[in-house]
């Protein structure tokens, strides 16, 4: 198991390392002078721009810039933002708990709703329950997050006034989490159905039925446990998708997370903040996938030895 965890950690480190190269190159791909683009609106003189270029190390060859950047990163320094001149890591860490709360609560909704719907559809395969569940799933997959968010906002916050439009407490988390969770539940429902149908057709499930085991034991102890293995393996990717989806949903509900911050940074052309966001996103997603892979390996020992 230790070897497996080490392998997964190494893969995560490679991902993070490639991300550091990508964000260093990013600023050099900007057409024109990035310093002028970033600071041009601040009424700076050419001398001041040159001083900024030296301060940011942009006058150095790209390999040296990369090594300097990597050195700073190892000390936890992601640079300073252009707007407000604050440490990027501090801004990200202030906003991250909100995004994490949104991502985890929507993952919970997606898993509970999606897997139940998929399981039910597979169990009642070919009936109206299956058809309705899959129609619901394909409609869910096709619905834009932000539109679903606006519809929920219109219905529950403006018309029925059950929930707040925005704010910072747990009640204001319900609508964004539902928006993000329901949209991803549709994907998980389709996956679960497909996986469960494969399992229901397997000999061991038929044998369990033939042995006369109670239906509930066959369903929950035999079929469900095996059927959910491929679905659980997708949770790492689902987590990444939810983190990505949070960028849009946070903007619908004015939720103060890193996603909203990223959009503000793109508008302001705040490159240190954009670089910091991409790297931060890569680190979180890489670490989350290690955690999920390890949890998955505990569930299915075959993974550890493959």
């Amino acid at each position: 198991m230790a070897r497996f965890i080490l392998q997964r950690l190494m893969a995560a480190l490679v991902t993070i390392w490639i991300a550091t190269i990508a964000v260093t190159i990013l600023i050099h791909l900007v057409p024109g002078d990035p310093v002028r683009i970033m600071y041009g609106s601040f009424q700076t003189t050419p001398e001041e721009l040159e001083a900024i270029r030296v301060r940011l190390g942009l006058d150095q060859p790209i390999w040296r810039q990369y090594l300097m950047y990597l050195g700073r990163l190892l000390h936890g320094d992601f640079g300073n933002s252009i707007v407000g001149d604050q440490p990027v890591i501090d801004i990200l860490m202030t906003r991250f708990p909100s995004t994490l709360a949104l991502t985890l609560s929507s993952l919970f909704i997606a898993v509970v709703v999606g897997m139940s719907l998929g399981f039910l559809a597979a169990y009642k395969r070919g009936t109206w329950v299956d058809v309705s569940a899959m129609v619901l799933a394909i409609v869910g997959v096709s619905m834009p997050h932000f539109w679903l968010g606006l519809l929920l906002l219109f219905l529950f916050a403006l018309q029925l006034q059950w929930l707040p439009v925005a704010g910072g407490d747990w009640r204001s988390l319900i609508l964004p989490a539902l928006t993000l969770g329901l949209a991803n539940a549709a994907v998980l429902a389709r996956l679960t159905r497909s996986a469960m149908i494969d399992i229901f057709d397997q000999d061991f499930v038929r044998t369990a039925h033939a042995k006369g085991l109670p239906k509930s034991i066959v369903l929950y102890r035999h079929a469900l446990r095996s059927g959910l293995v491929p679905v659980v393996s997708m949770l790492g990717l689902q987590f990444a998708y939810l983190m990505g989806g949070a960028i849009v949903v946070e903007n619908v509900f004015a939720w103060n997370g890193v996603g909203r911050l990223a959009i503000e940074a793109v508008f302001a052309r705040d490159y240190p903040l954009i670089q910091g966001f991409i790297l931060f996103f890569a680190i979180i997603v890489a670490l989350a996938s290690v955690v999920i892979d390890v949890a998955y390996a505990f569930l299915d020992p075959r993974i550890r030895y493959s």
Binding site: V14, T15, I18, A19, A22, L26, L29, V30, P31, L237, A240, Y241, M243, G244, G245, I247, V248, A262, I263, A265, V266, R269, Y271, I274, I278, F281, A282, V285, A286, S289
Partner: peptide, 21 residues
């Protein structure tokens, strides 16, 4: 390996990076 790494970034983050450029 490069493709896998980019894949894990998700499309929206890559798109944001491109728009930043």
């Amino acid at each position: 390996r490069l493709v896998d790494v980019l894949f894990s970034f998700t499309e929206i983050v890559i798109a944001l990076a491109c728009l930043a450029i």
